[in-house]
Design a binder for these strands. Sequence first.
DNA 1: GTTGTTGCAAAGAATTTGCAACATA
DNA 2: TATGTTGCAAATTCTTTGCAACAAC
Lengths: 133, 133
Amino acid sequence: METELREAGLRVTRQRLAVLETLKDRTDALSAQDVWAEFRQRGETIGLSTVYRALESLQEAGLLDSFDRDGEQAYRFCSTSHHHHLVCLSCNEVEELQAEIVEEWVGRVSAAHDFQVTAHRADIYGRCANCKE
Amino acid sequence: METELREAGLRVTRQRLAVLETLKDRTDALSAQDVWAEFRQRGETIGLSTVYRALESLQEAGLLDSFDRDGEQAYRFCSTSHHHHLVCLSCNEVEELQAEIVEEWVGRVSAAHDFQVTAHRADIYGRCANCKE
DNA sequence: GTTGTTGCAAAGAATTTGCAACATA
DNA sequence: TATGTTGCAAATTCTTTGCAACAAC
């Protein structure tokens, strides 16, 4: 955990570690406000803006994925390898997906359109096995 | 244009038509603020909140696609059939893509994970042929 | 010791809401 | 006429910023 921070050129601070620790064990995505609420609840005191800054830097470092959730940004701990997502809109669980097919598609499209690809996303939304009644 | 509104159960108002008209002829995505600025520039007077409400209702009606652009929502006129996007981050042009492969992938994933799919997105971002130097 | 980080309060920006006037059907 | 829609201003909500105190290296 600390190693990853150092490799990303980020200092190892109590606050960043706390944010990472909070997200590390869960599979659902949390917003900055969510994370901050968790801290308050536990009695940990961390500034809200610090949470915003931590999430941003951790995402840039590739340790977190981010999702748009109706006007706010939500974050989830993620693996370093490229992947796509299966997102449950009910419980916010996010499962990572590997998809060679999608990569091939992206390659084909970019070539056909003379397009310089900098990123792509392929996410599936709905209700997970637990949430669909 | 008016027919589509009626079919969606929306009243045909000067404001909604103006919003549609503005987006209809362009291939880039505009935010509510952008659309409103266009109106001001042309001397058309429409309330900003009306623009927000119009864009939302038109999107729900399936006439517009929406994209997240760094904290704000951007909209683009779109075809009724399902499609994906090739988005230029430089000029905001959005090209629609058909991709049977992606549909197959979604079907396979949902089956394998016992997941009830309600939506999916597959978008490619980068610089279009015109914008890459 | 340097320099990146934090925390707070204030500022910013996008978006939503209440409600009376109004337009559409 | 009945009901959806508009416009305005105020209120919300998420997020960012300035800056002095502080912690990491």
